[in-house]
Amino acid sequence: MPVTTFSGLRKSVRLINYTPQTSALIVLFKETGVSAFFKQPLHELFEKSVPLDNFFAYSEISIIEERLDELNNNKKRIAVIEQFLCSKLSHNTTDKLVSEAIASIYLDNGLTQIRELANSLFISQDAFEKRFRKVTGASPKQFSSIVRMKSIINQNASSSTFLDIALENGYYDQSHFNKDFKIFTGQTPTDFFKSASYW
């Protein structure tokens, strides 16, 4: 894996093993924030990780990597990353329609019907999906499935059966739920909720 990498939104687990004496500094963008820094079509990066020099000059990335390596604490490293990203900010206006859609998806815990959401925002479904993908890097359906699974993880699994959780969250049966859950977390629901949390 390259030293500096950009990862698009994911709905499947990705475990990374680090060698001893190494660490990772992760920049987590808000759903509507990443498009202010990258001009490339973000939806093409869904479930993918690519070297950062696909977006910025290799010489710039090399300088940043060297500066980060020379610094002795994370506070200074974060300042370098912030300075670099601020220099790359192409615009800072947010798409209010997409922001409203994201808020609605979170409010519904990812159970939102996309056609109904587009209608409530007075936009055609096709135009809405294109606009949403451009800003977030995922389709509304992909984004909703991530929000739904995160919501399930945040629920107290001990108070319900997994079948109840599946049905309450829009699944028709437990096997489909188990399959999606394992793709998202890398574990079955039983194993996940018994183990220490990485979330």
Rank of each mutant, 00 (worst) to 15 (best):
S23R: 13
A24H: 07
A24L: 08
L25R: 11
L25W: 12
I26L: 12
I26G: 03
I26H: 05
V27K: 10
L28K: 14
L28D: 11
F29Q: 08
F29M: 09
F29W: 14
F29H: 08
F29D: 06
K30N: 09
K30R: 10
E31Y: 09
E31T: 11
E31C: 03
T32K: 03
T32E: 13
T32L: 01
G33Q: 12
G33D: 15
G33V: 00
G33N: 11
V34M: 14
V34S: 15
V34P: 04
S35D: 06
S35I: 03
A36M: 10
A36Y: 02
A36H: 15
A36R: 15
F37S: 01
F37Q: 02
F37T: 01
F37D: 03
F37M: 01
F38L: 15
F38K: 05
K39S: 14
K39P: 01
K39F: 05
K39L: 06
Q40K: 13
P41V: 01
P41E: 11
P41H: 06
P41K: 10
P41W: 04
P41L: 03
P41Q: 07
P41T: 02
L42P: 07
L42A: 05
H43V: 09
H43P: 00
H43T: 04
H43E: 13
H43C: 03
E44T: 09
E44I: 01
E44Q: 11
E44L: 12
F46G: 00
F46M: 00
F46S: 00
E47I: 00
K48D: 01
S49H: 05
V50G: 03
P51Y: 05
P51H: 05
P51F: 06
P51S: 13
L52C: 08
L52M: 15
L52A: 15
D53T: 05
D53Y: 14
N54R: 13
N54G: 09
N54V: 10
N54H: 13
N54D: 10
F55D: 06
F55V: 08
F55Y: 10
F55H: 08
F56G: 03
F56L: 04
F56M: 04
F56W: 13
F56H: 06
A57W: 03
A57R: 09
A57F: 07
A57D: 13
Y58A: 11
Y58M: 08
Y58T: 12
Y58I: 09
Y58F: 09
S59T: 14
S59R: 13
S59M: 07
S59W: 04
E60V: 04
I61H: 13
I61L: 13
S62G: 04
I63V: 14
I63T: 15
I64L: 15
I64A: 01
I64G: 02
I64N: 02
